[in-house]
Structure formats: structure tokens, C-alpha cells
Design a protein around this nucleic acid. Structure first.
Lengths: 208, 208
DNA sequence: TGTACATCAGTGAACGCGCGTTCACTGATGTAC
DNA sequence: TGTACATCAGTGAACGCGCGTTCACTGATGTAC
């Protein structure tokens, strides 16, 4: 009884914290994270403005938590998909995983692509680090792709990640039924970065 | 005398308008365009808050003018450079022109890369259109490059522009002396997109 | 030529509003003895 | 076991502040006759 109650308390706090994070994403998707206020988030999350301080010192701290927790999770999943993909399908698997993330949580993806180039330097730096991890996973997955090519420049994987998130931004501005049209050109471009061999080896994966 | 005076009036108005645009860029570079206020811009430009309305209805209209005029100008210049470049040097000329723009007007470039993925849908749409024009110029410059290859997919030029502005965002976060290191990997990535022939034909242009 | 009127960029006072933050408090729960 | 104290998420009142916007005005210049 005692333990259950104390656990419920912790879960309650976690639930409110989560509500604040989601509220910030929801509002940020409408008019940008930079112009979302503490009171607005608290209102959307259903708590008093003063209760906000029980969870975050200010909106910047909340934003950092968004990147570390929600964005970090999505990026880790993408990395795992790339690493686990069968040889020759790494790129298409990664693209499909990105499109799935856009469909499943557009508000989070909007936040990520916006803050990657946004106003807060701290947000950009944190996101850049997490995207570098994804690029590293992709690089590993592609060099161990097919026969063990090893000379793939790191720049290729980083550029591929750039194209991936640029396409995510584009997808967010298209109505869902039109998003599928982005898939093939994106896969083609990313494969170009990995050079002609990768392109050839991967064409088994299936094109139009 | 009469004509001179009326002309001076118009020039005065143009000067104040320009001061508002520059002030918005300057403040936006610090804490993001979305959170820059009308009063703040007027203060920075040296006019009374109420005078703002003599030039723009609101901050959104000012932002659209920034994109149409200042950003549009930079993008047109980049396109002209690409078109005028000698065959085989289109990519490196474009990259150098971008790096020059970053060095010359970092506040404008910050605005462009931020609002490309930013909160205002109208800004994104307008910038996307202008970037598409640049991609079209680049496509033209590359297909008439060397011998008249014509089969280059439009996706290649669009992806190249994505990489170009992604690198601009990265350059803005580096101290100026370290920006040169971005040049070669970026050129390499962009040339990969244009396929092996373009890569080979262009390698006369000079690498490290 | 002079006179009367129109235009228009810039202004200062004033408005109501929502913001971030502080404060002292409540009430449920955990801890010490 | 009961009692006293500590912790801590959530609260409502209150603060001072800067915001966007309105209004009526000034003064320089252009236009009509």
C-alpha cells in the first residue's frame, strides 16, 4: 500500500511531465517552439502556470528534454533499423522508417527539422550530435553492406542524413497521400552518395 | 528643387524600410525571427513603434519582404554564378559563392536556413519556390556541362541544393577559419549526386 | 504669383492583455523515533 | 503503535513589464486653381 502509493506518485509526476512535453510539441507545430510560452504550455497540459516549475526551470530546459528524450528515441530507432537492414536495402529501409516516423508523429518531426536549423544554439548543437550518431550507424551499415567495402567517406553518410531530414521537412508540408512520391527520388539521391557500386548492389532492393 | 525634394522623400522612406529589414535580420539572428517583436524592430531601426505601420502591416509581411527581396537576391546571384561557371566547375563555383554569402551576410543566411524549415508555412513555401529556381538553374548548368548530357534527373539538382544549404547552416555554426574545411566534402557529395561522369569531367576543376 | 487643400512619414499618449516569476499555502505521502 | 516532522506536486493571488494596436496630431511636401 505504502509502496504502491509512492509509485503512483512518481507515475503521476511522470505523466504530467509527459503532458508538458507533448503540449509543447503540439503548440510548437502550430506557431513555432520559440514563441511558445510557459503559461501556454501549462494551460494546454492542464496544470496551473506555477506548477510548470515543478518540472522544468524554463522552456529551454523543456526543449532540451524534448531533444534528449523524444527526438533521441526516434533517431536511435532509425539507427537500429539501418544497422539491422539486410545488405543492399539499408537506404530504402531507412527512408521507409523516416516516412513512418513522419506519419506517426508529425509534431515531433516538425520540431526536429525546425530546431535543427532554428534559433537556439543549444538545440542545434544537441540535435547535430544525435544526427551524427545516426550518420555513424548508417556509415557502418553501408560499409559492411554486400562485400566489405571500407573506403566510403564519412561525408557520404552525413550528406545522406542531411537528405533524409530535408525530405522529412518536405514530407511534412505535403498532404499524406502525396508523401509516397518523395520516396523514390530520395532513395535514388542517397544511393548516388554511396557511389556506383552501392547503387548497383542495392538495385536488387527494388526500384519503380 | 521640387523633384529633388520628392525624390529625397522616397529615398528616406526606402532607407527606413531597409533599416527595418536589417534590424529584423539582426535581432532574428540572436533569438529567432518568430520571437522578434514589432516594437523591438522599430527600436533597433531608430523609429517610433507606431511608425512601423507606415512600412509593413505586421512582422509576417516584413518577413515575406525579407524573403522576396534580400533572400531572393542572394539566390538569384547564386543561380547566375552557376550558369556562368565554366563546364566542370559548376559545383565548386556554386559552393564558393555560398561560402562567400555566408561570410558576407551571416544574418541573412541564418534567416534563410532557419525559415526554410521554420514555423511559418508562408515563409517555407516562398523559400521553397526560390530554392526550386536555383535548383533549376543548377540543373541547366550541369546538363549543358561538358558534352551535352541530358538524362540528369531533376532530383539530383534538388538534392544538391539541399546539401548546399545544409552546409550553409553548418558553416554558420563554425568559427570562420574552420569553415573552409566544409568545402571539399561538400563538393564531393554534390558531385556524387551528378553521377560518375560529372564527377570525372569535373575533377579537372581542382581538388585539395 | 499666391492660396487652399491633400498626402503621408513620423510621433507620443493611452489602452487592455498575456507574459514570466514570486510567494505563501494545501494536502498527500514518507521518515524518525 | 502513535506522534512529530520533512518532502514535494500543485495552487491562486499578485507583481511589474513589454507587447500590439488605436488615436489624434505635426510638419514637410505636392497639387489645383
Amino acid at each position: 500500500m505504502v509502496l504502491r502509493a509512492t509509485l503512483e506518485k512518481k507515475q503521476d509526476k511522470e505523466r504530467v511531465r509527459g503532458a508538458l512535453l507533448r503540449a509543447a510539441l503540439r503548440l510548437g507545430a502550430v506557431h513555432g517552439f520559440a514563441s511558445v510560452g510557459l503559461r501556454e504550455v501549462a494551460r494546454e497540459a492542464g496544470i496551473a502556470p506555477t506548477s510548470f516549475y515543478r518540472h522544468f526551470a524554463d522552456m529551454e530546459e523543456l526543449g532540451l528534454a524534448l531533444i534528449r528524450e523524444l527526438a533521441g528515441h526516434v533517431l536511435r530507432v532509425l539507427g537500429e533499423r539501418a544497422v539491422a537492414a539486410p545488405p543492399g536495402e539499408v537506404v530504402s529501409v531507412l527512408v521507409d522508417a523516416m516516412l513512418a516516423a513522419v506519419a506517426q508523429d508529425p509534431e515531433l518531426m516538425r520540431f526536429m527539422v525546425a530546431e535543427r536549423a532554428g534559433a537556439f544554439e543549444g538545440f542545434r548543437a544537441l540535435l547535430r550530435g544525435e544526427l551524427a550518431v545516426l550518420a555513424h550507424s548508417l556509415h557502418g551499415a553501408c560499409t559492411s553492406d554486400g562485400q566489405g567495402r571500407s573506403s566510403l567517406p564519412a561525408a557520404a553518410a552525413e550528406a545522406a542524413v542531411s537528405l533524409l531530414f530535408d525530405a522529412a521537412a518536405r514530407a511534412l508540408d505535403e498532404p499524406p497521400p502525396r508523401r509516397a512520391a518523395l520516396r523514390e527520388p530520395l532513395i535514388w539521391s542517397m544511393k548516388q552518395l554511396f557511389g556506383p557500386d552501392a547503387s548497383r548492389a542495392a538495385s536488387e532492393g527494388g526500384s519503380p
